[in-house]
Structure formats: structure tokens, C-alpha cells
């Protein structure tokens, strides 16, 4: 075989350099942040600055709190390489419990919400681990189970919370709860063994087990924690809306999934997850939703655009080498 030496064209060299620059992992890590800035800029221009008005920022923030809190828990689940579709139904159930208990005392209501979420999460984790059923199947089942229960409990009338609870609907309280949740999770994830263990399970469960990680126990704990954290989000939700209808938390699980993926979280989990995925993802997703509404687009068209963007981001970020089956 003869090898012919073709002189490289300057343009080809330039594009090759460009390509290698953009596929550098350190550069790739900034993609989500660039996406966030891009989306803010685009919508600022298209809405003629309305999206950066104080009113609109407050509106977006009010949606940020529950979503960002719940994303924190699901972030850990997805780091494992698992998925959790039961979050919406957890919001529904926990909100009902919070509302019902709010007539006795607020701390009791908070505790009740958290315990309800944790109990559903524990149920998910145990079924997933004990019967070796993939988590997305288990959580889709629990989603329908608890959605049904929510619908049953709210058949006659919405479950109302104590009216005075809405007095707690203040930005500083919600901000405090959100930041607190993020901070605690951040410390656990970044500065304890938990983070390394979760990433290891996501990257290679078998090898993690052989390295001494208690994989089953860790999974159960993470699903429980995800439920617990969503229980906190439920309290923030009740404070905001005051009463719970059967549709509370509807589609919340997809919102979480979309937010995390838009934030750059690889859907296969593993070593490439970053804590910043939660914050950036939540902001991108909500600015996008609100921006589309402000543009006055038709609801159907909004969904179409979101679908296209979601697909594009997944196609760009997915790690095809390490993607096996979602656990």
C-alpha cells in the first residue's frame, strides 16, 4: 500500500483545532453556563428586556424554589445512573400531608411532608434493589400508584391548608430553605465519601461493589433522600398555593429531568456529573419556559420548541461510550 501525503489545507487545520478545542473536557464543562447566558441574552432581546424586569424575575424565582430543591435529590439518583419518575406524585402526596397537618402545627407539617417523601423514596429504593427492577420502571409504577391516591384524596374537594400558612410565602424563607438544601447536599456530595461512591456506582456498579462500596444500601439511601428532599419542596409548594388539587405536581418529574439534562448532567450518570448542573439546569429550564410564555407563543408550539431543544441537548451531551442500560 502506498501512502500519499496530501498537504493539509489551512481551513481544515483551523476546523480541526476548533473541534479539538470544543471537545476538550475542560471547555465542555462550561457549555451549560454558556447555554444559560445565551438563553438569557436571546430572551432579553426577543422580549425587549421584559424577562429581566423585577416582576418577571420574582415570578421565575417563585418557580425556581421547588424545582431546584427537588432537582437536588434527583441529581443524586441520576448520578447513580438511575432515574426517578415518582417525584410529581411525591409532591402531590407530601403536599396533602403538609396541608392536613398544618392545622396542628407548622413544624409538624414540615416533618410530615418530609417523612411522606422519604417513605415513598424508601419504597422505590427497596423495590428497585430487592427485586432488581430497573428504577425507571419502579418509579413509573409508584408514580401511577400515588397519583391515583392523590386523586382519590382530592376527589370531593381540594385539600386546603390552614389559610395562615400562606403568610410564610416570603422570598427570604423560601430562599433560605432552597439554599440550605443545596448547601447540605453540596457538602455531602463534594466533601464526603458519598460523592465518590455515587459517581463510582454510576460509572461501573460491579467494580464499585468490588471496591467495597455497599451498592445496594447506597441506592436505597439515595432514593430515600431524593424522596425526603422532594418532601421539603412540597412544603414550599403548599406555602405558595395554599390548597392541593389532584393535579398538584403533575409533570413535575419531567420538569426535573429536563432541567438536569439542560444543566449538562449526563443521563448515564457517573463521573462526569457536576453539582452546578442542578443550579444552571433549573435556571435554563425555567427561563426558557417563561420566555416562551412571554413571547405569547401558542402552548402547543411552546412544547414543540422545548422538545426540540431537549432532544438537541441530549444528543450533544450524551456519553455514548459509557451509556449502557439506565438502571
Amino acid at each position: 500500500m502506498t501512502q500519499r501525503q496530501t498537504p493539509a489545507k489551512p481551513a481544515a487545520v483551523f476546523f480541526e483545532k476548533l473541534r479539538s478545542f470544543f471537545s476538550n473536557p475542560h471547555v465542555k464543562a462550561f457549555y451549560p453556563l454558556v447555554g444559560l447566558l445565551l438563553i438569557i441574552t436571546v430572551f432579553s432581546i426577543m422580549t425587549e428586556g421584559r424577562i429581566t424586569s423585577l416582576r418577571s424575575i420574582r415570578l421565575i424565582l417563585s418557580q425556581v424554589y421547588p424545582l431546584m430543591i427537588a432537582c437536588t435529590g434527583v441529581f443524586m439518583v441520576m448520578t447513580l445512573g438511575s432515574l426517578d419518575f415518582s417525584q410529581g406524585s411525591i409532591i402531590g402526596m407530601a403536599s396533602i400531608v403538609v396541608s392536613a397537618l398544618s392545622f396542628y402545627s407548622i413544624p409538624l407539617a414540615i416533618l410530615g411532608g418530609i417523612l411522606t417523601g422519604a417513605a415513598i423514596g424508601l419504597f422505590n429504593g427497596l423495590i428497585h434493589v430487592r427485586f432488581k427492577i430497573p428504577s425507571f420502571i419502579v418509579t413509573i409504577c409508584t408514580m401511577y400508584l400515588f397519583r391515583g391516591l392523590c386523586a382519590y384524596l382530592t376527589t370531593n374537594a381540594p385539600v386546603a391548608a390552614m389559610p395562615s400558612i400562606t403568610a410564610l410565602n416570603q422570598d427570604w424563607i423560601k430562599l433560605l430553605i432552597t439554599c440550605g438544601t443545596l448547601l447540605v447536599t453540596f457538602v455531602l456530595f463534594q466533601f464526603t465519601k458519598l460523592g465518590i461512591n455515587l459517581k463510582s456506582i454510576g460509572a461501573g456498579e460491579m467494580a464499585a461493589r468490588y471496591s467495597g462500596v455497599r451498592t445496594d444500601l447506597t441506592k436505597v439511601l439515595v432514593f430515600t433522600a431524593a424522596g425526603l428532599i422532594t418532601g421539603i419542596a412540597a412544603f414550599v409548594n403548599v406555602v405558595k398555593v395554599g390548597s392541593i388539587t389532584s393535579t398538584a405536581g403533575n409533570q413535575f418529574e419531567t420538569q426535573i429531568l429536563i432541567a438536569l439534562v439542560l444543566g449538562g448532567l449526563p443521563i448515564s450518570g457517573g463521573s462526569k456529573v457536576r453539582f452546578s448542573n442542578i443550579i444552571i439546569g433549573t435556571l435554563i429550564s425555567l427561563i426558557l419556559s417563561n420566555g416562551l410564555v412571554m413571547l405569547g407563543l401558542d402552548t402547543a408550539l411552546q412544547q414543540l420548541i422545548k422538545g426540540v431543544i431537549f432532544l438537541a441537548v441530549v444528543a450533544l451531551t450524551i456519553d455514548r461510550k459509557s451509556l449502557q442500560v439506565i438502571k
Binding site: 463510582s200 461501573g204 471496591s211 463521573s271
Partner: peptide
Amino acid sequence: NESIIVNSSIRDNIVL
């Protein structure tokens, strides 16, 4: 599959 987590860094593998 069993000794080492291939899709992870050398650091995490040694430290685990």
C-alpha cells in the same frame, strides 16, 4: 468490569 471503574478517573479509582 470488576477490578476497576473504567469510566472514572485514576484518582477516584485509587482513592475509593
